[in-house]
Design a protein around this nucleic acid. Structure first.
Lengths: 233, 233
DNA sequence: GTCTATAATTAGATAGAC
DNA sequence: GTCTATCTAATTATAGAC
């Protein structure tokens, strides 16, 4: 987690044994609050979520939120940090590179059609597994607010730049469809995420978008739509 | 509007002149409340919107909401009805059929690749013009609630069935890409709407998605992505 | 129909015992 | 660190004068 808000902690040089138990319990409370906050914020939005509901889901009491985090706002930021960390994990775990050898850690090799295809497939799987992220993003990106400014600053900008840069390179090389990078960015994210963001609606329409068959044919479709026909990696 | 909630109205057979003025004022208040509600609900979500904020934006007082509508919930439903009416209007006004002659009113001719292309283009333009609709949809479709059940029942189901049926016909005829209808539905809606739903975020990223050049190249991109290359109508 | 005033709830945050 | 109890402010909805 990259947030600054922390529960007050003892200096780490000499923790007494009974204080270690205390600390372990505190960490558990903190983690439970973070997970509960994710679920609640993604489902009901920031305003629609009460700190009492979060505490109840976490199995603790409402004032713990103000103790472990400074405020409801700070808890939200910590939860979003945690969520982006989980996205990165999920992307890594779903990366299936298609060449004979895959990229190693700290890979800085230039983007290729194949690596971009693998990224899209991993993204679809990650988004299906982690709908909370895109839910929170779309809940917040819809209006100007201090939370939107924070999230763009801390998470969105770097990812936007990376993706549009890679797309521009591939486009110049004729390796993907001839689509403007910003158009491609929002079309890709939107096309990849809505089925999972709106999963409750889809279920009411008779569609279970969490099935593996849906997810994989979704990924196949995006590859043919964005990269073109020849090799739906 | 197709909602049932109405302000109490006089019998229409014999309106006295001074009561007509009264009624005109009331209608103005009702309409102002409806427009203000749309803006506020789309920006802040149902829970995040206070009836005071709506009344203030409408230039009237908070209790008027409970007078003209039964509740905050009923106002929300009336606003959504109004919004779908506006979507239909916007779709009609942006329909530019590409053949020598366009379809007339009450057209029931079978769907063609060309009519579907014209629909997609009109949809992109309409969604760009009316981001409130997709904002509200995504704000609500994210979790189960009585509002989601209502919106699916009253608006989404019919549109979902029409679009997926048309897609299936075109797909069987080989006129569009070979993509599952449900996958195509969510990919299309998501790809078409996110740039406008997330317009505030896009602006922070340096992208103005409301420019005509963005919208048209967005529509062009979707046509090539979903229909294939040969004729980006 | 519109207004002011207010009732009834619920929200986020804090105080202080343990 | 965690708990109970509570404060202050904001919420939706209603009462009743005009």
């Amino acid at each position: 987690m990259s947030t600054a808000e922390r529960a007050p902690t003892r200096p780490s040089h000499q923790p007494a044994p009974h204080l270690r138990r205390r600390q372990a319990r505190a960490d558990a409370t903190r983690t439970a609050l973070l997970d509960a906050a994710l679920t609640e914020f993604a489902a009901n939005g920031f305003e629609g979520t009460s700190t009492r509901a979060i505490a109840e889901r976490a199995g603790t009491h409402q004032p713990q939120i103000n103790y472990h985090f400074d405020s409801k706002d700070a808890l939200w930021r910590a939860a979003v940090d945690h969520l982006f960390d989980r996205l990165d994990e999920a992307m890594r775990s779903h990366q299936t590179t298609d060449g004979p050898e895959g990229p190693g850690p700290d890979d800085v090799t230039p983007v290729t059609r194949e690596s971009f295809a693998a990224m899209i497939r991993a993204f679809v799987r990650a988004v299906a597994e982690l709908p909370e992220l895109n839910r929170i993003m779309v809940l917040e990106a819809t209006m100007d607010s201090s939370r939107l400014a924070w999230i763009v600053d801390h998470h969105t900008t770097a990812r936007y730049r990376l993706l549009t840069t890679q797309w521009s390179e591939l486009r110049a090389a004729g390796a993907v469809r001839d689509i403007d990078p910003a158009v491609a960015y929002y079309s890709l994210i939107g096309a990849a995420s809505l089925a999972y963001v709106n999963a409750p609606e889809a279920r009411l329409l008779g569609q279970d978008t969490s099935e593996a068959s849906f997810i994989e044919s979704h990924a196949d479709a995006l590859l043919s739509m964005f990269l073109g026909e020849e090799d739906a990696a």
